[in-house]
Write a protein that binds this DNA or RNA. Structure first.
Lengths: 294, 294
DNA sequence: CAGGAGATATCCATTTTCGCATGACCCCAT
DNA sequence: ATGGGGTCATGCGAAAATGGATATCTCCTG
C-alpha cells in the first residue's frame, strides 16, 4: 500500500469540507474524480474512511486518525509554496490579504487603491471572511485580525490598539437622549448564521434581553442601515489615512470590557521572505503606524 | 501557481537521489516522466530548481530552499501511512526491518524464520543497508542500530549492551601467538566505498598504518574470508537463540574504547500502533531479552 | 404528497499522462 | 581514439485519469 501525496490532499479536502462535492470545488476538480479517487484510496487502505450520506461525507474512526498528519502535510505544503515563491525576488504579483468584513471594507479596500497607485506591479486580493483562513497553509498571505496568532508558525507583525465606540447616524443621535444607555439604543447586528460574530456576543452580555432592531448577514448592509439611521453599531474608532466620512458619529457610552481592542497584522513566518508579501506588509504597517500618531 | 503534492514528492526524490533517473527508480515511474514533470514544475515556479549535468541533477539555490519543507512533508506522509495501516488490526502482513549487513545476516535472517514459523500471517522483509533508512518516513518499520535515535519522532524500544571481540578461524588461531596484539593480526575489512563503515575507522584509530590483508564490499564475503582463515574481524559477541557456529572463535584482545557496544531497537513512535509492527517488535525484544540472560 | 435541492455513484468520450524506444551528450577507461 | 555506461531530453503509441451528463437516493419544503 502506498498513499499518493495527492490523495492525502484529496482526503483532507473531503474531511474539511465535509463532502465530496465540496472537496471537488476546493481542489478545482470534478466531483466524480473525488468519488473515484477516494474509493480507490479506501480500497488501498482497506478501510472505509467516510460514511456517505445525503448530507455529505462524515469521517469514520479510521478516517479520523488520518486527519492530523494530513493537516501537517498541508502546513508544510504551504511552507513549500512560500519557499518556492521567494524565488521571484521582485515585489510584484498577487498578494492575498484577509480580514473581517469590516476591516476589508473600511481599511483594506482603500488601502488596495493606495497600493496599486504606488506599486503598479502589485495586485491585492482582499478576502473578506468571517472565519479564519489558515495562513500556515497559504490560504492567504496576510491577515488583519482581532486576536493574536496561537500557531507557532505564524508571526505577529504589528499590533494596533484601538478604541471601540458606538456609532449612529447624525439624525439618530439628534433624536436620542443626551446620554443614552446601551439598553435604550436600537441595535443593528448580525443575523444567523453569524450570531457568534463580534459584536453580537458582546452586546448580548452587556444588554439583558438583547434584541436588535435590524439584523443582516451582510456587513455592508449593516453599515448602510446604521447610516440610514436604523440603529447603532459598534465599530473600532480607527481614523486612518483612508477614513471616509460615512455620516456616522460616536456616542459617549462606556463599553466596559469591550471599550478597547486590537488589530493584529499576522502572516506565516516564512511569508515575509516573499518580496511582494513583505512589501505589502511594510506598507500596511506604515498605515497602521500613521493611524497611531493621530 | 500551485504545487501539486505529488510534485513535491517528485522534487524531493530528485533532490535526495541526485538524479532524475534515481528519482524515477525510487518512485517506480519512468525517467521521462520525471524529466517532464520537473520541467513543468520549474516552469510553474518560474525558476530552475536543478542544474542538469552528465552526472545527475544538482540543486540550485532556489531548489535548496524547497528541500526542508519537502522533507517535512515526507515525514508526515510517513505518519499518515502508519495511521492508515493501524486500521487493519490483525498482526499479519509485511513488516520491514532494517539493520547493518551483519545484523541482518546473523540475527534478522534466522529471526525471520522463527517469526514465520510462529506467526504464518506475518512476513518479514529484511533490508540490509549500510546507511540509515528513514524510519520517520516509513522507509522501514523497525531498525536494529548501533546508535540511539536522534529524531524526536523515533522511539527507542529496547537497548542491548554487547561486547565486541576479535574473531578468527580456529585454524588461524592455532597459528597465532598465544596473546597476539592488534598490530600482529591480518585483518579482513571493508573496501571502498565502505571505508567509513564499522569497524574500519575504529581499527584505523587503534592500529597505526592499518593495512587489511583482505577487503571486500560484501559482508558475507568478509565472514567467509574470516572463516577460511584469511584474517581477523571484529564482531559483537552476541549469543542469541539462533546463533550458529560459524567456526569463528574470539581472541583475548582488548579493544579499548571499542570493547563494548549497543544494539538499539528503534521505530517511529506511531509505528507501534500498527499491530503487525508491534507484534514483530515484541518478538524481537523477547529475543534480545533472551540474549541478555545467557 | 410532490417537487426541488443537494448529496454520491456510474457511464462514456475526451484529454492528459505515462512508459518505451530512441537520441544526444558527457566522462572515463581501455 | 573509441566503446561503454551513465546522464537528461524527445517522439509517439498506449493506458489511465478526468469531466460532463446522468442516475439514484435522501431530505426538506410548500
Amino acid at each position: 500500500m502506498d498513499i499518493s501525496w495527492d490523495d492525502a490532499r484529496l482526503f483532507l479536502a473531503i474531511a474539511e469540507t465535509g463532502s465530496f462535492s465540496g472537496a471537488a470545488r476546493r481542489l478545482r476538480i470534478g466531483q466524480p474524480t473525488v468519488s473515484r479517487r477516494l474509493a480507490a484510496l479506501e480500497y488501498a487502505v482497506g478501510a472505509t474512511l467516510f460514511r456517505r450520506s445525503a448530507d455529505g461525507a462524515a469521517l469514520t474512526a479510521a478516517g479520523e486518525r488520518l486527519v492530523p498528519p494530513a493537516k501537517k502535510m498541508a502546513e508544510w505544503a504551504g511552507e513549500l509554496h512560500r519557499a518556492a515563491e521567494s524565488a521571484d525576488n521582485s515585489p510584484r504579483g498577487l498578494v492575498r490579504v484577509t480580514g473581517s468584513p469590516y476591516t476589508c471594507f473600511d481599511v483594506l479596500a482603500p488601502f488596495a487603491g493606495h497600493v496599486s497607485r504606488k506599486h503598479p506591479g502589485l495586485r491585492l486580493e482582499v478576502l473578506s471572511t468571517v472565519q479564519y483562513l489558515d495562513l500556515a497553509r497559504g490560504e492567504a498571505d496576510l491577515a488583519l485580525r482581532t486576536r493574536p496568532p496561537t500557531n507557532a508558525d505564524l508571526k505577529l507583525v504589528y499590533t494596533l490598539e484601538t478604541r471601540n465606540a458606538v456609532f449612529v447616524s447624525k439624525a439618530l443621535k439628534a433624536k436620542l437622549p443626551r446620554k443614552p444607555t446601551l439598553q435604550q439604543l436600537p441595535w443593528v447586528a448580525w443575523s444567523p448564521p453569524f450570531e457568534a460574530v463580534t459584536p453580537n456576543p458582546q452586546l448580548e452580555s452587556l444588554i439583558p434581553d438583547f434584541k436588535p432592531v435590524f439584523t443582516t448577514d451582510n456587513f455592508l448592509v449593516m453599515v448602510a442601515a446604521a447610516q440610514a439611521g436604523v440603529g447603532a453599531m459598534v465599530l473600532a474608532d480607527v481614523r486612518h489615512r483612508f477614513s471616509q466620512d460615512r455620516g456616522l458619529v460616536p456616542l459617549d457610552i462606556d463599553l466596559g470590557p469591550y471599550a478597547t481592542g486590537q488589530v493584529h497584522l499576522v502572516c506565516a513566518k516564512s511569508a515575509l521572505d516573499i518580496p511582494r508579501v513583505r512589501k505589502v506588509s511594510e506598507l500596511l504597517v506604515e498605515e497602521l503606524e500613521y493611524t497611531k500618531r493621530r
